[in-house]
């Protein structure tokens, strides 16, 4: 027990890095996903094709590969070759990757809204922005909550991939402790930490779903 208490401060420090990556990714990738989804259902064919290609590429290759590519590969690309620090590189890869997934979730959500809703809005004189903001997106929100919840929980766990960039997130801190102390207890504690994070998220999404179920 004393041992566990002794390692908790270090592990909390690791958790801060994990949470930082988590929150920045969520805050950036969801709006980007919305914009991509709106482009994906728009009437511009070129835009639709470009976004499909983007989604295909980002969903079709491992996040780990994307992460390594952004960190180690980007500097070698001619002309645009830029070298990002580990945290910005991680954010960059995670946001691009998660935006692709969110784009598909939002697209499905938008397409699940019946045509009649748009027509009713149109006959009431609403323009595109009003129709989307007041009529379509609020209904989409309800439909996409379960898959978004799923994706968000996956993100908590995916953050552990940044250990390949030698960042001291929760997982890497844990591994260091295990190797230093020849004790597997940190693994258990890390498991509990991840569980707490995902449980808090699950709880929040359940609340949200309840809130949106009033009109069922």
């Amino acid at each position: 027990m004393d041992y566990i208490i002794s390692i908790i401060p270090q592990m909390l420090l690791g958790t801060v890095d994990t949470l930082r990556l988590f929150f920045v990714t969520i805050v950036l990738s969801i709006p980007l996903g919305v914009v991509l989804a709106l482009g994906r259902v728009s009437s511009f064919k070129t835009l639709r094709t470009c976004i499909s290609g983007y989604v295909c590429l980002l969903r079709g290759t491992p996040l780990m590969l994307q992460l390594l590519f952004v960190y180690y590969g980007l500097p070698f690309i001619p002309v645009i070759g830029i070298r990002l620090d580990d945290f910005p590189a991680a954010i960059f890869a995670f946001v691009l990757n998660y935006a692709a997934y969110f784009c598909e979730i939002f697209r499905a959500g938008i397409q699940s809204i019946p045509k009649g809703q748009y027509e009713a809005a149109q006959t009431l004189g609403m323009n595109y922005v009003q129709t989307m903001r007041r009529i379509v997106l609020p209904q989409v929100l309800k439909v996409i909550l379960p898959p978004v919840s799923n994706e968000t929980i996956t993100l908590v766990k995916d953050t552990s991939l940044i250990y390949v960039l030698a960042m001291n997130d929760l997982l890497r801190t844990t591994r260091n402790l295990v190797q230093r102390d020849f004790n597997i207890m940190p693994f258990v504690v890390a498991g509990v930490f991840y569980l707490i994070m995902t449980m808090v998220l699950t709880y929040m999404f359940d609340k949200l779903e309840k809130k949106f179920s009033v009109y069922d």
Binding site: P114, G116, Q117, E119, A120, Q122, T123, L124, G125, N127, I135, P138, Q139, K142, Y215
Partner: peptide, 21 residues
């Protein structure tokens, strides 16, 4: 066009009420 369209109220076969309101 919107101004002209707003002169007409439309009632649909499927009602098309906004379910979230």
């Amino acid at each position: 066009a919107t101004k002209i369209i707003c002169k007409m109220g439309m009632v649909f076969q499927q009602f098309n009420l906004f379910p979230h309101m």
